[in-house]
């Protein structure tokens, strides 16, 4: 008999404690961010899709060694370069990133020995067309220059 009432009272008491906690939470300040109206700054190391780092004159630092191409697990980078006449170095002519298959692992940035690529801070990427995610990074670099 004692146990019967003890169970009822301890049970009820635990329920009231729970109610007390949610009641406290009710008046606490809100912690959410209203995304389209507000947004937070991405951290310095945020891994967005990659982009080329402009050199002093805005030219890409890439030397077309192809390490990023090889390091990529999902083969989403394809670069092209050519040797202009009279020059020893290769010059980047195209840097294509197929963002649809990229898994943002960072292997390409890791593998680059020349510090030519970095992560962008872009995260608002949305489209209904697949082609919108085939980035030409060289073009982006030139656009950012202007």
């Amino acid at each position: 008999m004692f146990r019967y009432f003890n169970d009822i009272f301890s049970g009820l008491w635990s329920l009231f404690i729970g109610l007390g906690i949610t009641f406290q939470e009710f008046f606490k300040p809100k912690i959410t961010i209203h995304y389209p109206h507000q947004s937070i700054k991405m951290t310095a190391r945020y891994r967005g899709h990659i982009e080329l780092i402009p050199g002093e004159e805005g030219q890409p630092l890439c030397v077309v060694c192809g390490m990023c191409e090889k390091a990529c697990p999902s083969n989403c980078i394809s670069i092209g370069g050519e040797k202009p006449e009279g020059s020893k170095k290769k010059v980047l002519t195209s840097y294509r990133l197929d963002f649809t298959t990229c898994s943002l692992c960072g292997s390409c940035v890791d593998s680059c020995n020349f510090g030519a690529i970095r992560f962008s801070k872009e995260y608002n990427l949305a489209s209904t067309r697949k082609e919108d995610f085939h980035f030409d990074l060289l073009k982006r670099l030139e656009e950012s220059k202007q």
């Binding site: 951290t43 190391r45 945020y46 960072g106 890791d110």
Partner: peptide, 21 residues
């Protein structure tokens, strides 16, 4: 973890012999 690794869920933070950052 995002501030350290750059990612929130699929960290890919460890490398052979060390770390990414």
């Amino acid at each position: 973890l995002e501030a350290v690794t750059g990612s929130r869920l699929t960290y890919c933070y460890f490398r052979f012999g060390g770390l990414y950052n």
